[in-house]
Amino acid sequence: MLDAFSRAVVSADAKGAPIGSGELVALRKYVADANKRIDATLAITQNVSCIAADAVAGMVCENTGMTQPGGNCYPTRRMAACLRDGEIILRYISYALLAGDPSILDDRCLNGLRETYLALGVPTANAARAVAIMKAATVAIMTETNSGRKMFKGINSGSGAQCQEIASEAASYFDRVISALS
């Protein structure tokens, strides 16, 4: 598992060169954006159940057969598993966001996820749809573009609009999950 710093170290080591001014430019930006990154992570951690539940509900509304007998979210035991997985995916995305590197998401969450879902008979297209809704919700909460009240309390006051860049990084992690599923 890597973070932005150790990613730079691993690639410098492959060249056998120390990390100089060139590589440090990107790392200094990562450090300078630390408060925004932490706020963006808080935006996820403070709204986990809301984001996951909304996404699963949205997915079910689009495919009402899912909660009927024979559907993939019937009975509630399977619906609960679905909600749980939504939260797990959000958890790994919050780790990746904090680390500024997707390796933890890849290694510990996405590796083998599609195969597991296929083996369990989980419809991956629907799962990917739920992740897409989580992405939209997360980005909206992070950038404070959601309708209604501000949904998280960051350490960096007035952070929402400044989180734009970090929010697109978060969106790229959701896209990673979607492409791993499809």
Partner: peptide, 19 residues
């Protein structure tokens, strides 16, 4: 590779909790 961030994330993941 161990760093401040990966140490924290590893511990959080072992406990299955959010940061």
């Amino acid at each position: 590779m161990k760093s401040a961030v990966t140490t924290v994330v590893t511990a959080a993941d072992a406990a299955g909790r959010f940061p």
